[in-house]
Structures are given as structure tokens and as C-alpha cells.
Simulated assay, not measured.
Amino acid sequence: MRQASHRLTIATGGRGLTEVTDPVERWLAGQGVGEGLLTVFCRHTSASLIVQENADPDVQRDLEAFFARLAPESPGLYRHDAEGPDDMPAHIRAALTQTQLSIPVESGRMVLGTWQGLYLFEHRRRPQRREVALHLLGE
């Protein structure tokens, strides 16, 4: 059994989804592990990770619109606003999604469906630099 770990720094353009499938696949391909389990972990409380459709950009727009309705920016609605009006809504969005994913690895690649991609879901309005930790266990 082998283990490997790595950290990716992802620049986001602000609120929305940033696909990270390719940089994760590139790192994975260099590890020499054929079968195993990849853990992907977002080290932030106002961003998250999701596996989502990567074919139709309307899916991403609809997800963002849904979360805007679910956790709106609204003055006076939340106590926690230390970093601005998007602060607490970002925490709520992260709490409702995932900060850690476990993805099977077969033949040295993530076992994702045909239309699935791995995304960092940025919940803050402004561009951010986010860190994603990768841990691979396999042989």
C-alpha cells in the first residue's frame, strides 16, 4: 500500500464554480497508483467541493442562483458579518455542501461519470486563493 499527498492552490474568480478536475488528474497520473482512494479536502470555511455536471454551464448558473435564494446576503439577517455581507451566507453554503470528497481510483484515474467534474465552489464574492489538500491511498 502506498500513500501520497499534495496541496493545490486554486485561484477563484469570486463566487461560483471553478473546475479542478484537470489539476487533480495530472497530479494523480504522476503517483503511479493504479487502484485506491483519493481524498480531496478544502481547507476553508467559506468554500466547498462538489462533483457536478461539466457539460452544460447552465447547471452551474442554476446552482449559484439556487444558493443565492437559499442563503441570501441581507443586512441584519445574520449576526456574523465580520468580513462583509457575504461572510455568513458563504459559511451557510459551505455547511450545506461538502469540504471533503472521497473518490475511487481505478487504472490510475478518478472514477468519475461521463459528465462529472470536480469543482471548488467559491462562496465569497471576491476572488480568493484556496488550498485543496489531496491524499491518495492505494497500490
Score class of each variant (00 low, 15 high):
residue 136 L to H: 05
residue 90 A to W: 08
residue 136 L to G: 02
residue 106 E to Y: 14
residue 72 P to L: 04
residue 95 A to M: 13
residue 62 D to T: 04
residue 78 Y to V: 04
residue 54 N to A: 09
residue 72 P to M: 07
residue 70 L to S: 08
residue 105 V to Y: 10
residue 127 P to C: 01
residue 22 D to I: 07
residue 128 Q to V: 01
residue 3 Q to K: 12
residue 65 A to S: 13
residue 78 Y to D: 07
residue 32 G to P: 01
residue 44 H to P: 01
residue 15 R to S: 09
residue 20 V to N: 06
residue 99 T to D: 12
residue 9 T to P: 00
residue 16 G to A: 08
residue 122 E to D: 08
residue 41 F to Q: 12
residue 22 D to Y: 11
residue 40 V to K: 04
residue 9 T to F: 12
residue 117 G to Y: 03
residue 109 R to A: 14
residue 19 E to S: 11
residue 72 P to S: 05
residue 29 A to L: 11
residue 10 I to N: 06
residue 47 A to E: 00
residue 7 R to W: 09
residue 41 F to K: 08
residue 8 L to G: 07
residue 108 G to I: 01
residue 73 E to Q: 14
residue 41 F to A: 15
residue 57 P to Y: 07
residue 95 A to K: 01
residue 138 G to L: 00
residue 118 L to A: 10
residue 125 R to P: 00
residue 6 H to N: 07
residue 6 H to Q: 03
residue 53 E to S: 11
residue 98 Q to T: 13
residue 8 L to T: 06
residue 80 H to G: 09
residue 97 T to P: 08
residue 134 L to A: 01
residue 61 R to P: 00
residue 79 R to Y: 14
residue 133 A to M: 10
residue 78 Y to C: 05
residue 45 T to P: 05
residue 33 V to Y: 11
residue 124 R to C: 05
residue 87 D to P: 06
residue 110 M to Q: 02
residue 111 V to W: 08
residue 133 A to S: 12
residue 96 L to C: 14
residue 100 Q to D: 07
residue 42 C to L: 10
residue 60 Q to W: 15
residue 5 S to H: 09
residue 120 L to W: 06
residue 22 D to R: 12
residue 92 I to A: 13
residue 113 G to L: 10
residue 52 Q to T: 11
residue 122 E to K: 00
residue 124 R to E: 02
residue 30 G to H: 04
residue 58 D to Y: 14
residue 133 A to I: 00
residue 80 H to D: 12
residue 76 G to C: 12
residue 61 R to F: 15
residue 27 W to P: 01
residue 84 G to E: 03
residue 28 L to N: 03
residue 61 R to E: 14
residue 21 T to C: 09
residue 106 E to I: 15
